[in-house]
């Protein structure tokens, strides 16, 4: 599974959100899309998942453009509570099971049980943290070729971050790639194979995580703080 983005440009009205971004994700790689709020991380992700239709450049997911075919290869966790809140947890499992052939229902049920999520409760009656765990379980229970996780640890307390990262890494499918966006670097950096730093819609710095650490003599979190120290 490869993800290839060439010269991606996207405007919102007169605002240039992306200014010619190039990204390449190899099979099995865990890639961090790192940048502060407004740097273009979510815009890139939305373009890959087909949520944004008008853009310039090329996006190829295993040879397919964003759309129905590509969506069957992508397991996407947005930075919003995307699972319909009127559903019971068990109904949301059935929903994923109905639409995704690579969805592992027993695995999802096991994950939810381990997280102590009551299956008969409506999602809207769960706490925000529980809702996020439901979303994460459903997404990671797929044996997808590419996992796209938009700020999975952005809105949770530090104690839950390790648990979320552990869940992601433990349930990644064999050969499946992960594209993970975050503005919190310290908690994810040890798991990254490759890091892409985005600044104001452009790739500011990229490279293999270990090499970047060696070359710059800093860990990615320190590097991030240095690069973005003046960016709110």
């Amino acid at each position: 599974m490869t993800l290839e983005i060439k010269n991606l440009k996207k405007n919102y009205g007169e605002v240039e959100a992306l200014k010619g971004v190039n990204i390449f994700v190899k099979p099995g790689q865990i890639v961090g899309l790192l940048g502060p709020n407004g740097s273009g991380k979510t815009t890139i992700i939305k373009t890959i998942t087909g949520l944004l239709s008008s853009y310039e450049g090329e996006v190829s997911i295993n040879g397919n453009s964003p759309g129905v075919l590509a969506n069957s290869d992508i397991s996407y966790l947005p930075d919003k509570s995307h699972v319909p809140t009127w559903m019971k947890v068990s109904q949301s499992v059935d929903f994923f099971s109905d639409f995704y052939t690579d969805f592992d229902k027993p695995k999802a049920l096991e994950m939810l049980t381990n997280m102590e999520i009551p299956l008969n409760r409506k999602i809207k009656s769960l706490s925000r943290g529980q809702q996020e765990k439901v979303g994460l379980s459903l997404v990671m229970a797929r044996n997808a070729k590419l996992y796209i996780l938009d700020e999975p640890i952005g809105a949770v307390d530090p104690a839950s971050r390790d648990f979320i990262m552990e869940t992601i890494l433990k349930n990644q499918s064999d050969g499946g790639s992960i594209l993970i966006s975050s503005h919190i670097i310290a908690d994810i950096e040890n798991n990254l194979d490759y890091a892409i730093f985005l600044k104001q819609g452009e790739v500011f710095l990229e490279g293999e995580a270990n090499k970047l650490r060696e070359e710059k003599g800093k860990n990615l979190d320190e590097l991030f703080r240095e690069v973005f120290k003046n960016v709110v």
Binding site: L51, V68, P78, V83, P84
Partner: peptide, 18 residues
């Protein structure tokens, strides 16, 4: 409206369905 254009649209519009 909710199914397509709210936060739930992030799920609906990324299903492998036309």
């Amino acid at each position: 409206s909710k199914g397509l254009f709210s936060d739930h649209g992030y799920l609906t519009l990324t299903l492998p369905v036309s």
